[in-house]
Structures are given as structure tokens and as C-alpha cells.
Design a protein around this nucleic acid. Structure first.
Lengths: 77, 77
DNA sequence: ATGCTATGTAGCATTAATGCAACATAATGA
DNA sequence: TCATTATGTTGCATTAATGCTACATAGCAT
């Protein structure tokens, strides 16, 4: 969280986004955020708010737990 | 999100917490946050970061989607 | 060559999330 | 009665998340 910056959140946004053939701008539009915010998240420069995570999950037709995790994702799905 | 304050997140933290017989302090300890932060969340005065949501879900043995939603929860489960 | 799209980087401003302290109240139990 | 526990309320300080602007690069199509 904000007060525990050494606690990252891993995500599969880019994987899920490209699987749907969406650009960052496309996803940003769907989620209602700036396109660069998607970039920051994909590069894991910071972790999203819960609201944004829920919106992104919805935009990508995924469960939050499928897209975001406190532990690194295993390779290849 | 931060930039969309008119977009609340609904949650069932209190419901799930009391079902486990935990006080707010207990849950706060498990999730590693201040006990008043749990209070703010239960009263839906603000929505948590994704990291905190994931930690709370883990502490309560629930899926994020079972605890948090962009839409109001129906009554009784 | 020119333009367009997608992406990365950097910087700045704003605001929400969180920590923390102090105080109040109600319930419970010794 | 007194102490403890759980909860609510207010206020203040800090920082991360987000928006936004500008610029750079690479690829692709015309």
C-alpha cells in the first residue's frame, strides 16, 4: 500500500490486453484512465487503486485475482 | 479511483470479519495496517489500495471479488 | 520521405489513502 | 466502581496514484 512501498503487486495486464488485441489507449479508454497510467501499471512502476483494478479486470473480462497478485505469476499462464 | 471520487467501492469487510470472530484490531494486525484504516473501509469512507484489498482478502480467506465490488452487494450473502 | 500509431521517459500538480494521536462512548467483566 | 475492549470521530502529516504535457523512438503504411 502507500505506506508499504516495498510491497509490490504483480500483474498480467499486458498479457491480457494484447491477447484481446487492445492497445494501451484502448484499454485506458475502457477503464476511464489516462493511457500512460496503463503503461505505468504494466511496467509495475506502481500498483493501482482497487477501483482501477476492478475496472481493468472488467475491461479485460478477467477476475482481479487472475490479473493481480501479491506473488509473482508463474511463466506462461 | 483517486481522480474519480464519485465512484465508490462497496465491500463486505465487516460481514466477513465478524463471521470469523475478529475485531478490527485483529484484522488490522493480520493485514498490517492501522486499526482505524479498517474502520474507514468498513464505513466506506474511502476505498483501499489494491495491495491492501489483496491483503484483507487473504486475511479473511476470501476472493477480492467476494469482498469488494463496484456495484452494491445484495442483501444476505 | 512523410505521417501515424504505439510505446517509453521525465516532470509537475492534485488528491486520496494511510498512519497516528487524542478523545468520546458503550458494553462487559472483575 | 474501575478497567478493558471495541468502536466512532476529528484532525493533521506524508506519500503514492493519477492526470497531463511534452518529447523521443521505433515500426508500419502510404
Amino acid at each position: 500500500m502507500s505506506r508499504n512501498p516495498e510491497e509490490p503487486v504483480y500483474n498480467r495486464i499486458e498479457e491480457a490486453r494484447t491477447a484481446l488485441g487492445l492497445s494501451r489507449q484502448d484499454l485506458a479508454d475502457k477503464a476511464g484512465v489516462h493511457y500512460q497510467t496503463i503503461g505505468y501499471l504494466e511496467r509495475e512502476e506502481y500498483s493501482p487503486s482497487l477501483v482501477l483494478a476492478l475496472r481493468i479486470a472488467k475491461s479485460l473480462n478477467q477476475e482481479v485475482s487472475q490479473l493481480f497478485s501479491l506473488n509473482p505469476f508463474k511463466k506462461g499462464k
